[in-house]
Design a protein around this nucleic acid. Sequence first.
RNA 1: GGCCCGUUCGUCUAGUGGUUAGGACUCCAGGUUUUCAUCCUGGCAACAGGAGUUCGAUUCUCCUACGGGCUACCA
Length: 469
Amino acid sequence: MSNPSIKVRFAPSPTGELHIGSARTALFNWLFTKHQDGKFFLRIEDTDPERSKEKYADQILESLSWLGLNWDQPIIYQSQRLDVYKDRVKTLTKAGVVYRCFCSRDVLQTAREAGNYQYPGTCRNLSEEAIKQRLNQGSSFTLRLKIPEGETNYTDLIYGNIRVDHKELDDFIIVRSDGSPTYNFVVVVDDHDMEISHVIRGEDHISNTPKQILIYQALDYTVPIFAHLPMILGPDIKRLSKRHGAPGVQNFKDDGYFPESLLNYLALLGWNPGTDKEVFSLDELVNEFDLSQVQKKGAVWDEKKLHWLSGQYVKKTSTDFLLESIRGIHPDWGKGSEISFLISVIELLKVRAKSLTEFITQSKYYFSDPESYDKAGLKKWWKNESTNERISTFLQDLDNLSNWRKEELEKSFKSFAESNQFGLGKIIMPVRMAVCGTPNGPSIFDILELIGKEICIRRITTALERLPN
RNA sequence: GGCCCGUUCGUCUAGUGGUUAGGACUCCAGGUUUUCAUCCUGGCAACAGGAGUUCGAUUCUCCUACGGGCUACCA
């Protein structure tokens, strides 16, 4: 049961990979439309041949797929609709709402630098004769929209009523001198042709909206409903950009985040459910999302919270799926080990790892002997030769242990500590350093059991030879 | 310069004409633990400023300040 009256679109320009800000826009569009069984369309805004690259378009699509923001076909490429735009220009020309402007870029630029920010309307009322003359001279020209007197207002679903006096608007260019159409024009044509009901996009488009509404009216199209989303900001409160560490979606995939946790975090950036709930599945987001709960002010990107959320997801995720996911980003992980062994490793690390990459970095010692030992750990737990004495004595107990199970190991550690009047940590921690190379990690008994007697004995023997120096 | 938008703990946010202004992340302290992490308990920390309306404003209005966006033959 789909709702034919709800159609939204996400319209990236392929001038770079999908970054976090755009992903948030895509997500809000997607949540909004899924919430009411509407359609979600994609449009690639590739009318700038200088900056648009096909590989970026593909990359954006890939990132969206990874995020799980599936779209309804077909994808519209603006570069394939040039004829359509030409046709609509004709319509506007016929209607007499556009005019040729022969002003050169330089002239306009100079005027702007002199403080005249608005186009002065130089060519607005050129006589037929003057136009003909310019054309005969072969002068190039742009096409500008003739903005009528008055004002335009619209109700933004997030910002409320927005009103702009036409005095503030230039007769802006809709067709460049090379014949290509500009953004503010094509966006209207496309949104109309795609029958978009709700235009949900970044706040940076608020000022463009009145111009676009004027085009809707000039073309006699129905004006859609607009909703503008606040910006995502960097720690310096400036709009988040590549400067702030290139927060592309791909990076988060590479860093081992689940798409769900990224999406969850993104949703919380500017939206809230009206309850204390913070951890959402995608379905829950769809159910609870509502544009009326979207903030007006920009939100600062906070990676720490993402990291925490990611940890929440990791904890809830099944071990099997974690294994699959880890191998998804690192196919060689645990190569040569039994699956059951890998499952055990993941289970031990599950409460510690907050992302898939952390499973990889924290699991080295399960697969290979430590090459070096954590310095701070040694300083605290393997100070001098007395540790060697203690551990080499204990090593014999371990060696004699016939049943290498964690329960037995624990008994052995405890009885050795007790009978020799050592604190338990004095034995556990040096052993941990010897076996793992790091003082941090899961229960030592779990680790020893899992890694197995032979290897553990070997590592402890090696450590006794190499330490304390 | 002009126009538009915004302003609650460091960050994400809830909230009401009268609240001890709530939650989450971070940070700190304590507990649990062999370590780390988890978990539990507690703590620090905010209504930008000024007028006005009102018995009473964080909440409503105006002004100021600050911040952001737009002002392209980019999208």
